[in-house]
Design a protein around this nucleic acid. Structure first.
Length: 257
DNA sequence: ATGTCCTGGATACCAGGA
């Protein structure tokens, strides 16, 4: 079973790019972030034609998440991250495919920091930590997949002393939230497979980031202890970032037995 | 400090988010 995460940065503006990649990579499950469309505008028919069923929670202009499954419809379990009924942003969707539960997430960016946007990011991550614990307590095979908007360590960025130093993605409080998930028992799949590789998944459109490989690792797969033993292979589809009309994120793929 | 690209509201280009 091949599972993927892909921050598509506008699913309609980049539908051709997405369909070409699906055709080429043939993943079984895809967690998408930053749809930037409401549910009405989700390209359900085009994805069905490409062989993928979908569940999605869209939002006009910003955010929005979806889970695709090849040849089937994912079994939807939630569209809201518990813990704050007043939170209206579409950043979480959860569904089961072939006995594995996928939590597709798009954590808040949190800039500028400090400030209310960074506070929201930390509160959102705290809610994720609480919800993640319920999966572990239940012993379920779960993958937390998506754009966490956290650079976990200085090894996960081209230069920790760059202008990113004061960015919300690198702040100690954000990193502490990610570390707390690992301390719960979640396995950082890509880092476990490749302890020494950069594993960048994001290159800013600005600052000439892609040509000089000024990347950040912010898209992650966290596997529950019951699922982690099935981990076989994983990589970032780096070449996708260099395509015409690419998202600022590259997709990443894992193979599970 | 700057840079780029998406979306929406407009119906030209700008604001907001990232």
């Amino acid at each position: 079973m091949r599972i993927a995460t892909y921050n598509i940065n506008g699913i309609n503006g980049r539908l051709k790019v997405l369909l070409a990649w699906l055709e080429e990579a043939q993943p079984d499950v895809v967690c998408l972030q930053e749809l930037k469309t409401d549910d009405h505008g989700f390209p359900r028919a085009a994805l069905e034609k490409a062989g993928y069923g979908a569940v999605y929670k869209g939002q006009k202009a910003n955010h929005g998440v979806a889970i695709l499954a090849k040849g089937s419809a994912p079994l939807l379990t939630r569209k809201l991250l518990p813990g704050d009924p007043t939170d209206k942003q579409s950043r979480y969707i959860e569904a089961a495919v072939e006995g594995v539960l996928f939590a597709c997430l798009y954590a808040p960016n949190g800039n500028p920091q400090p400030g209310p946007r960074f506070d929201y990011k930390l509160r959102w991550l705290a809610r994720l930590i609480d919800h993640a614990q319920t999966f572990l307590t239940a012993g379920l095979p779960v993958a937390l997949v998506g754009d966490f908007n956290v650079v976990p360590t200085d090894a996960d960025i081209y230069s920790a002393q760059s202008s990113w130093k004061t960015d919300a993605l690198l702040q100690p409080a954000a990193r502490a939230a990610f570390a707390k998930l690992l301390a719960q028992g979640w396995v950082d799949a890509l880092r476990t497979l490749h302890p020494q590789s950069p594993l960048y998944t994001f290159w800013d459109y600005k600052r000439n980031a892609w040509p000089r490989n000024a990347g950040l690792r912010i898209d992650h797969f966290l596997l529950s202890p019951t699922l982690a033993p099935r981990l076989r292979e994983g990589h970032v589809e780096t070449a996708q970032r260099g395509r015409e009309g690419a998202s600022d994120h590259a997709p990443a793929v894992l193979t599970l037995r």
